[in-house]
Computed example of a mutant assay.
Amino acid sequence: MKTRLIIYFLLLVMTTPVIAQDAPEPTQLPVIPYYSSSQNFNVPIPPGWRQISTEAGLAEFIHPDVDGAIYALAVQAEDVQSALNAAFEQLIPELEIEQRLTGVITLDGLDWYKSLYDIVGGGNITAFVQQRDSTYYVLLYLNRNPEIDLYMLAIEAENNNEQVSIEEVLSQLYPGVDLEPITSNEVELSNGTWIRSTYQLPDGEALHTLHQVRFDTTYVVIERGDGETLDTVNKALFTALFGFFVTPDNDEYLLLGIVVAAGLVIGLILSMVVRYRNLQKDERLIQQLKQDVH
Results as ranks from 00 to 15, higher is better:
126 T>V: 01
126 T>K: 02
126 T>L: 07
127 A>S: 15
128 F>E: 11
128 F>C: 05
129 V>E: 02
129 V>I: 00
129 V>H: 03
129 V>N: 02
129 V>R: 03
131 Q>R: 12
131 Q>Y: 00
131 Q>H: 05
132 R>L: 15
132 R>H: 12
133 D>Q: 09
133 D>G: 03
133 D>P: 01
135 T>Y: 07
136 Y>Q: 07
136 Y>V: 00
136 Y>T: 00
136 Y>I: 03
137 Y>W: 00
137 Y>F: 11
139 L>S: 03
140 L>Y: 04
141 Y>M: 01
142 L>I: 09
143 N>T: 09
143 N>S: 08
144 R>S: 11
144 R>A: 15
145 N>M: 11
146 P>V: 06
146 P>Q: 05
146 P>L: 07
147 E>S: 15
147 E>K: 12
147 E>N: 15
149 D>W: 03
149 D>S: 13
149 D>M: 05
151 Y>D: 01
151 Y>F: 10
153 L>Y: 05
153 L>C: 08
154 A>H: 01
155 I>T: 06
155 I>E: 12
156 E>R: 15
156 E>A: 08
157 A>E: 04
157 A>T: 12
157 A>M: 04
158 E>W: 10
159 N>T: 14
159 N>M: 14
160 N>M: 15
160 N>Y: 15
161 N>K: 13
161 N>D: 15
163 Q>S: 05
163 Q>Y: 11
164 V>A: 04
165 S>R: 05
165 S>W: 06
166 I>N: 12
167 E>A: 12
168 E>G: 12
168 E>P: 10
169 V>Y: 10
169 V>G: 07
169 V>C: 10
170 L>F: 04
170 L>A: 02
170 L>Q: 02
170 L>T: 09
171 S>G: 05
171 S>Y: 14
171 S>Q: 15
171 S>H: 08
172 Q>H: 06
172 Q>C: 08
172 Q>F: 08
173 L>I: 01
174 Y>K: 13
174 Y>H: 10
174 Y>R: 13
175 P>N: 02
175 P>R: 04
175 P>V: 00
176 G>Y: 02
176 G>Q: 06
176 G>H: 01
177 V>G: 06
177 V>K: 02
177 V>D: 05
177 V>Q: 11
178 D>E: 10
179 L>S: 10
179 L>G: 06
179 L>R: 01
179 L>K: 05
180 E>V: 13
180 E>D: 11
180 E>L: 12
181 P>G: 05
181 P>T: 05
182 I>Y: 07
182 I>K: 09
183 T>V: 07
183 T>I: 05
183 T>M: 09
184 S>A: 04
184 S>P: 06
